[in-house]
Computed example of a mutant assay.
Amino acid sequence: MDRRQLSAALLAAGLPPESFQIHGVHTHDPLPTDFWFLRPGPSGDWEVGAYERGKYDVRERFSTEPAASACLYQVLTGHDAPS
């Protein structure tokens, strides 16, 4: 699953749009007070984390976009990502 598929899957699962941010696909203006995010990391990896109280907190790093997408899906839904 790539990040575009992830965004569609999260919305289809009934998550509120303000509960997540996916780089280049699903962003906010203005920023909500807290949400989970998926973004490219500084060294070519992918970061999954939470934005809380004005700070980005990277919780996990992955070498591939599909692995990071699957993680974020599982964190937000409690289920494995659809195949």
Rank of each mutant, 00 (worst) to 15 (best):
G41N: 09
R59T: 12
Y51P: 02
D80T: 09
D34L: 07
Y51S: 01
V58Q: 08
G54C: 06
R59K: 13
S19P: 10
A81I: 06
E52C: 10
G24N: 04
L11S: 03
Y51V: 01
L72C: 06
P32W: 00
W46S: 09
Y56T: 11
S69C: 15
A8S: 08
A70E: 15
R4E: 15
F35L: 02
I22V: 14
R39L: 08
Y51F: 14
I22W: 15
W36N: 10
D45Q: 13
D45W: 01
A67D: 15
P30C: 02
I22P: 06
C71R: 14
A12F: 00
A12D: 15
V75Q: 08
D80K: 04
G78Y: 00
F35M: 02
P17H: 05
W46E: 00
F37W: 04
G44Q: 08
S19A: 15
V75D: 09
P32R: 09
S7F: 00
A50R: 15
L72Q: 02
S7P: 03
P16Y: 03
F62T: 08
R4S: 11
C71A: 13
G54M: 05
V25N: 03
R39N: 07
S19N: 14
S19F: 06
A9C: 11
R53P: 04
L15V: 12
T77L: 05
S63L: 07
F35W: 02
F20Y: 08
T77G: 09
E18C: 08
Y73S: 04
G41W: 13
T27I: 10
P16I: 02
E60P: 01
A12E: 15
I22H: 11
A13Q: 08
A50W: 10
T77A: 05
G14V: 03
Y56N: 14
V25K: 02
R61N: 09
H79F: 01
T64A: 09
E60A: 04
H79P: 02
A70D: 15
G49I: 04
Y56F: 11
K55Y: 14
D80F: 02
Q5W: 13
Q5M: 07
I22R: 01
V58I: 13
L38C: 07
F37I: 12
R3E: 14
M1D: 07
T27M: 09
T27R: 10
A50G: 05
F37G: 07
Q5P: 03
A12R: 04
L72M: 11
H26D: 06
H28A: 09
A68R: 06
V75L: 04
H26V: 05
E47D: 06
T33V: 08
L15W: 00
D80Q: 12
A8I: 04
A8M: 02
S7Q: 11
L31C: 07
P17G: 10
E18I: 07
R4L: 12
A8H: 10
S19K: 13
E47M: 03
